[in-house]
């Protein structure tokens, strides 16, 4: 459930809502970090739920000593009135037994907030690609039926590739096709929920493997920016994203000198 930081709950009517899926390589979450950190979005509330594993830390987007020690929780909402943008950052895994409740609470909140559209940033296992998917860009999109009308023209202009459906029974080419997003966490289920409930949702995902996923995060953030223009960029140049302070020491502490 959404709990505002201030006395008055903010209004998100007609805002664009961006959220990550906890998926392979944590790419969606890393891309969301880039968005919040670069646009310096203020925190407007918490998504307080028993569906996520608890964690806290101090401010991952600290810009000075004064704001460095503000407490951050496992799911927080950031927003910009000027950009009409709301972003939910999820920092912990979803409990296996509570994925259905989590999806339900997210969809319910999306509907009651009146977002004009939702963008889910996600990823999928690169090793599960078929022969066709190995060629070309690893970036894919999906649009729920309600968003088709509003967004498909622009998506077509950008020349994006829609996420391919796979055969329900591999090897039998004339079997029914279904959506399969291995390593995508709740992506497929949340997308299906939004299709069924007429929620305008776009899924932007990239194929990747676990490892140093920072380049994947930048690629996904650029992909999103090509569509939504969150950052104004001069022609032919890449957007300048700011990595947050929390991206230090991603692969462990300093090396003990005693081992040499």
């Amino acid at each position: 459930m959404f709990v505002p930081t201030g006395e008055t709950p903010p209004s998100f009517k007609s805002y664009t809502f961006i959220l990550p899926a906890v998926s392979v390589g944590n790419v969606g979450q890393l891309a969301t970090d880039l968005i919040i950190s670069t646009l310096q979005l203020p925190k407007v509330g918490y998504f307080h739920t028993d569906a996520l594993i608890p964690m806290v830390g101090n401010n991952p987007y600290a810009t000075s000593a004064e704001n460095a020690n503000e407490l951050s929780t496992n799911a927080e909402v950031y927003s910009s009135k000027e950009l009409k943008l709301a972003v939910l950052q999820i920092r912990a895994p979803i409990l296996q037994t509570k994925t259905k409740e989590f999806r339900k609470s997210i969809v319910s909140w999306m509907k009651s907030s009146g977002f004009s559209k939702t963008v889910l940033l996600s990823s999928s296992h690169a090793y599960q690609r078929d022969d066709q998917q190995l060629q070309g860009t690893p970036l894919r999109f999906l649009l729920s039926p309600t968003l088709q009308e509003g967004a498909s023209a622009r998506i077509k202009e950008l020349g994006w590739r829609e996420m391919e459906k796979v055969c329900a029974f591999p090897g039998i080419s004339d079997s029914e096709k279904k959506l399969y997003i291995p390593g995508g966490g709740v992506t497929r289920a949340l997308y299906n929920d939004c299709c069924n409930e007429d929620v305008p949702m776009a899924v932007l995902l990239t194929f990747c493997s676990e490892g140093d996923n920072i380049p994947d995060a930048f690629a996904l953030a650029n992909y999103l920016n090509d569509w939504l223009h969150l950052l104004s960029t001069p022609a032919e140049a890449s957007p300048q994203w700011n990595a947050p302070a929390s991206w230090k020491l991603l692969f462990g502490s300093g090396i003990p000198p005693a081992i040499f």
């Binding site: 307080h48 594993i53 608890p54 964690m55 806290v56 830390g57 101090n58 991952p60 600290a62 460095a68 020690n69 503000e70 407490l71 929780t73 496992n74 302070a245 929390s246 991206w247 230090k248 020491l249 991603l250």
Partner: peptide, 30 residues
């Protein structure tokens, strides 16, 4: 680590980035 409502001082440095807190202490602080 302290919540925004806590106005008392602390007797040691704050947890530095990128360290986090998990488990029961995290649940209580959340």
């Amino acid at each position: 680590l302290s919540t925004s409502a806590y106005k008392g001082g602390v007797i040691c440095p704050f947890v530095e980035q990128p360290n986090i807190v998990t488990g029961l202490p995290a649940a209580v602080l959340c």
